[in-house]
């Protein structure tokens, strides 16, 4: 096959009419996740863009029951939903917490860590747009080094590296962790299929381009996501049981600047700063390679 074929399940659970911005990666991610999980799914959404995207009560775009919950409580609310379903003998329902990076890396981290440590039977998805977008693009611990946000202006951009959430979750020895990209829908779908087939705590980290927050053009959301993977800024891999690493996509690499230059939030970066990012990306990639090599 000369054109790389892409296929995803035909069923549409999510509908039209949501209020995500044009070109929103988080909307694409939800659409594909639900194609796999299907109608027997409960979604738990803490405060984040998606609590707005979904629509005003009593309306909802996702097509399955949604529980809107407080900012810091995605994991624990999902845990409670699972307990309730179990108490009622409903064993064949997927429970998915769906939170932003603020709700995952920052304020929700305590309840997430607790659920992970107890190996709760939930799928926790973090759609990571690398800032608090819903409230106006404030930095989170997921914001990458050097990026502009409204709280890290260009004369004082983010000075700390992005928190490595996958490492943090791996430290909890949960059965399944994966990174996924909306630019690789088939890979994303496979990861949700794998997650669906496993019991216990599953964590999926999806990089979600945000045109207003990243100062990028909507039509390039997929292109940017793909460049994140190709530049190895956001490698696509899985971690089984907290220590078995496996790369799932390994496209021809490109320099990080290919990824950075399409986004206004990186426009102020000097060539030295871009070199610094390249070095960080390279060393994280090498570390990932070592982990993969010692995994099996």
């Amino acid at each position: 096959m000369s054109q790389i074929p892409v296929s995803v399940p035909a069923q549409e659970i999510m509908g039209s009419g949501h209020v995500a911005c044009p070109g929103c990666g988080a909307a694409m991610a939800m659409r594909n996740a639900l194609k796999v999980l299907g109608p027997k799914t409960v979604v738990v959404i803490p405060a984040c863009c998606w609590s707005v995207i979904d629509g005003p009560t009593p309306h909802s775009v996702v097509g399955v029951p949604v529980i809107h919950t407080a900012f810091e409580t995605a994991a624990i609310t999902a845990t409670g939903v699972r307990a309730g379903l179990r108490a009622r003998g409903e064993e064949d329902v997927n429970v998915m917490a769906w939170a932003g990076d603020g709700g995952t890396f920052d304020i929700g981290f305590q309840s997430l860590s607790g659920a992970a440590e107890r190996n709760e039977d939930i799928i926790y998805v973090c759609y990571d747009n690398e800032a608090y977008m819903n409230t106006g693009i404030q930095r989170s611990s997921a914001t990458p080094w050097g990026a502009w946000t409204t709280t890290t202006p260009v004369n004082n951009p983010k000075s700390r590296p992005k928190k490595n959430i996958v490492d943090a979750l791996a430290a909890h020895h949960i059965p399944y962790i994966a990174t996924a990209s909306v630019a690789y829908p088939e890979d994303l779908v496979k990861k949700f299929e794998r997650a669906k087939s496993i019991r216990g705590m599953r964590f999926i980290h999806i990089l979600s381009p945000c045109p207003p927050g990243w100062k990028s053009v909507p039509e390039q959301s997929i292109r940017i996501s793909r460049l994140a993977v190709k530049s190895r800024v956001f490698p696509l891999f899985e971690v089984l049981d907290g220590w078995k690493y496996r790369l799932t996509q390994d496209p021809e690499p490109v320099p990080v600047n290919e990824y950075l230059r399409l986004q206004g939030r990186f426009r102020h970066l000097t060539p030295e700063a871009i070199d610094q990012i390249q070095q960080d990306v390279d060393s994280r990639w090498n570390q990932l390679q070592q982990r993969i090599a010692s995994s099996f």
Binding site: G17, V19, H59, S60, V61, G63, P65
Partner: peptide, 11 residues
């Protein structure tokens, strides 16, 4: 659970 969808919202 509400069953109202969003198709009324012509984006």
């Amino acid at each position: 659970a509400s069953t109202g969808r969003m198709e009324w919202n012509h984006t």
